[in-house]
Design a protein around this nucleic acid. Sequence first.
DNA 1: TTGACTGTTAGCCATATGGTTAACAATACG
DNA 2: CGTATTGTTAACCATATGGCTAACAGTCAA
Lengths: 112, 112
Amino acid sequence: MANSQAATLDRSFVAVAHPLRRTILERLAEGELTVGEATHDFPVSKPAISKHLRVLEEAGAIVRVIDGRTHRLRLNGASLEEAYAWLARQRALWERKLDVVEEFLKEQEDGA
Amino acid sequence: MANSQAATLDRSFVAVAHPLRRTILERLAEGELTVGEATHDFPVSKPAISKHLRVLEEAGAIVRVIDGRTHRLRLNGASLEEAYAWLARQRALWERKLDVVEEFLKEQEDGA
DNA sequence: TTGACTGTTAGCCATATGGTTAACAATACG
DNA sequence: CGTATTGTTAACCATATGGCTAACAGTCAA
């Protein structure tokens, strides 16, 4: 269970670790798009794009609806929630530590 | 320039895309640790750990201070800030369409 | 029906990733 | 000194990743 959760997180972070895949997600945040609309200006071949889409889909980051000969892509916001939560928690811990250090330094200044 | 920024983001996301590396970062959030302290219970060899540390270091996620024969590792909170910001922004955009996300959350609740 | 359009699969290639064992370097300690 | 401890590098292996071309599948439209 904890293992499969970790695997989900792995896939999510891998999904956003490539600039083209991030661009796709950014564009889908504006709304549903077809594959062509989302990637027409990408400097790679169609098969390469197809592979990136599969990575995003298997990470659960996007959902595909086949509509005639085009595939409409939709963002699945919930899927990246876990990844966001991990970074947010890590960030909170780090900031708390910074606050503690800051407080300590301030006390030193005031006291000494 | 925008390219190198993307490359930085790439490295950051790659850094947190492996469970052992995330565990290292989680433990370092509690404070500075030596390599052994941070990874003594990891089910992999020392060279494997060494490689993970290098990934984290090159992503700027950690800083290493060689102290005698041990290496003390420290979290570099700022380095993951960019990654956090990307996810946070993406999350803000999709939250704007919460009606769409709601469907998935309800599905998750019902399913689990 | 013929052809154009949208996108995927199959197969290939180069490089990256994640792991291993063996050997090494540097430090600490008896 | 000799030896244990901490961690790295070197060399190797299997698999994954990211790209390509060629070929295909399905849909739309003339």
